[in-house]
Design a protein around this nucleic acid. Structure first.
Length: 120
DNA sequence: AACGTGACTTATT
DNA sequence: GAATAAGCCACGT
C-alpha cells in the first residue's frame, strides 16, 4: 500500500535509525537514506530530521559524509553540538569535524528489500 | 500542476 | 585538490 503513508514510513525509519545511534557515535545522511530504502535521498533525510526537531532524536549525532556538523544551522549552535558530541566521547578534528574513522556508525537494515547498485 | 528550495552525495571541470 | 554541475527525494508556495 504505497500510499501517502509511504512518506510517513520514510520519516519513521529515519527517526528510528537516528534514535538507535549509540552514544559517542555518529552517522551520515547517506547511510540513513540507504537504510531507509533510498540511498540517493540524503537530502530528504535532512528534511525528516527537520520535522524531528521536535522529537527526541539526537540530531547532533547525524553529520554529513565529511563528518561536518552541517545541521548546526537548524539545530541552533554548532558549538552546542560540539560540546554534546564531545561529552559523549566523540573526537573532533582541527576543523571542528567528527573523527569519522573512529566514530562513524552505520545503521543496519532490518528486513527492507533494498536494491543495492554498487557499480562504479 | 509546476517551480523552487533544502540539515546531501557523487561526478566532472 | 578545489570549485562547479547535476542528481536525488520530499515539502512549500
Amino acid at each position: 500500500m504505497r500510499t501517502k503513508k509511504q512518506k510517513q514510513d520514510f520519516f519513521d525509519r529515519v527517526f528510528k535509525i537516528v534514535a538507535k545511534i549509540p552514544r559517542g557515535k555518529v552517522t551520515t545522511y547517506g547511510a540513513i537514506a540507504e537504510v531507509c530504502g533510498i540511498k540517493s535521498a540524503a537530502r530528504t533525510v535532512g528534511w525528516a530530521l527537520n520535522g524531528a526537531s521536535m522529537n527526541y532524536l539526537p540530531c547532533h549525532r547525524v553529520v554529513n559524509r565529511n563528518g561536518e556538523l552541517t545541521g548546526k544551522v537548524h539545530f541552533g549552535d554548532i558549538h552546542l553540538m560540539e560540546e554534546l558530541l564531545r561529552g559523549e566521547g566523540v573526537e573532533f578534528d582541527s576543523d571542528g569535524n567528527v573523527d569519522m574513522d573512529k566514530h562513524l556508525w552505520l545503521p543496519k537494515k532490518n528486513k527492507s528489500k533494498i536494491k543495492s547498485k554498487r557499480s562504479s
